[in-house]
């Protein structure tokens, strides 16, 4: 129970990072925290029904649920890809505006369009 409450708090910290922090890099950190939280949640909860790694050998039963682990492999790779792409976009945003502050970026880029 307590572990899941801690994970929920971690989730909210990540959400805080995305929504409140002005620095775009910190926003991306927030996204990464969200992603890690859900990975931990899946793997932690899936491991509660067993005590051994899901690599079959003699006398290792019960194993943990392997399905969440396989799903989270996919989720981790996707999370890393999205982070890499976001960072490269931020690199270009910094190149063209010279700032990491989201409000400044917005006002500099959209000043002639609004």
């Amino acid at each position: 129970m307590i572990d899941r409450i801690l994970l929920l708090i971690l989730f909210l910290i990540g959400f805080y990072g995305i929504i409140v922090k002005k620095n775009v890099i910190k926003k991306i950190f927030g996204l990464t925290i969200l992603n890690s939280t859900i990975v931990m949640l899946f793997v932690l909860e899936g491991s509660k029904i067993g005590s051994h790694v899901p690599i079959l050998e003699e006398n290792i039963t019960p194993i943990v649920d392997p399905v969440p682990q396989a799903l989270m492999l996919t989720a981790i790779v996707i999370g890393v890809c999205v982070t890499a792409l976001a960072l490269s976009i931020v690199y270009r945003l910094f190149n063209s505006t010279g700032t990491f502050d989201i409000d400044e970026i917005r006002s500099k880029l959209y000043k002639d369009e609004e």
Partner: peptide, 15 residues
């Protein structure tokens, strides 16, 4: 440059 900001917002909110 505006496209990068648009893409960034889209990426963050949908991710």
């Amino acid at each position: 440059p505006g496209a990068f900001l648009a893409s960034f917002s889209y990426l963050m909110v949908s991710a």
